[in-house]
Design a protein around this nucleic acid. Structure first.
Lengths: 178, 178
DNA sequence: TTAACCATGTAAAAAGTTACATGATTGT
DNA sequence: ACAATCATGTAACTTTTTACATGGTTAA
């Protein structure tokens, strides 16, 4: 699974422009690509060159013209193929843990300040995730099962943040008598 | 927090060689750097150039000579400084979720096969993490509080994997009647 | 005898981020 | 008046991974 297949996934819903894809990536939260121009526009050119998508330029009156990408049969086949591939294990990159590893150099108050700041970060992420879920911008469920899968994807994120908050509570309790 | 500060952290324990650092990074599991040659040896050269560490070449009889790096006062100051910095929020990059997002193209059996594979991956990671914790290769706790912090860092990883397994169970239950 | 370990480093490629560039339109 | 949205793309930079390069030693 890489950016190429994620884009193919979205295009399996309907034809989309690069600009719209950028927003979909921004709204999704579980897609590990920031969706910056360089990544998306470049990948779309590649997908087109490989015959996995077709491109159509649509001129508009008072706006710049769009390039609408449509998935091909070959693209659908490529997407379906990628779904049976060996799943990658999740990568949890948590630089706060690195900070904590040598936090014994700090006084108790500074450690607690650090924990507060981290907790604030997590809560911010959790709230944003819940907000996005409520608005459900990113969502074209074609079957009941697909709707369920997307719900579970959001749940995965939310449970991840809540788990982190639970861990923080344990950490605080343990530190109390240290 | 970046690789530089993580290396300074280890060097705050004792003088270490690049080769040994590589193993420490490999054994730690919570450090998001793979610890490949290019990263570590290069960063050590930079740290030396910045005066945060000193280098001493130790010749050995039947092995290649080592370069032992020692942290300087300036290095310690830099490390302590980084501990009060704004903590980064965790990045959870889970490509399996991307796979799942379009898994409705698959039949029920194929989805279940995918879940099995993913569960196997998680369990593998969890077991490895527990193994490493048991052997406690990476561990020089100077105070009781530092020992506690390192325990909690391991706990963070373990809870993360267990949370993922719980989520998988929910997913399976939900899929059962879909 | 084959693999892993000792120990350093470089080269090249891939992946990702940030900033630059344009310029009309619409909402506050 | 100012910021955001529409919409595409490029350039420069940073980060990360993979592979190359050497060559003796030790344990299964």
């Amino acid at each position: 699974m890489d950016l190429k297949h994620a884009i193919l996934g979205f295009l399996s819903w309907k034809p989309i422009t690069g600009y719209e894809l950028k927003k979909l990536f921004f709204d999704a939260d579980f897609l590990p690509w920031s969706g910056n121009n360089n990544q998306i526009y470049k990948t779309l050119v590649e997908l087109n060159a490989e015959g996995l998508v077709t491109k159509e330029t649509v001129h508009q009156e008072s706006y710049p013209s769009q390039k609408v990408y449509t998935i091909t049969d070959k693209g659908i086949k490529e997407l379906k193929n990628s779904l049976n591939a060996e799943p990658d294990s999740p990568e949890m990159k948590n630089l706060f843990l690195v900070q904590l590893a040598w936090a014994d150099y700090l006084g108790k108050e500074d450690i607690l300040k650090l924990l507060d700041k981290y907790q604030y970060q997590i809560e911010l992420n959790l709230n944003m995730c819940n907000e996005k879920l409520k608005r459900k911008k990113v969502y074209i469920a074609r079957t009941e099962r697909e709707a369920f899968l997307w719900d579970m994807i959001w749940q995965n994120r939310i449970m991840g943040y809540q788990n982190e908050l639970n861990w923080l509570t344990r950490l605080r309790n343990g530190l109390a008598n240290k």
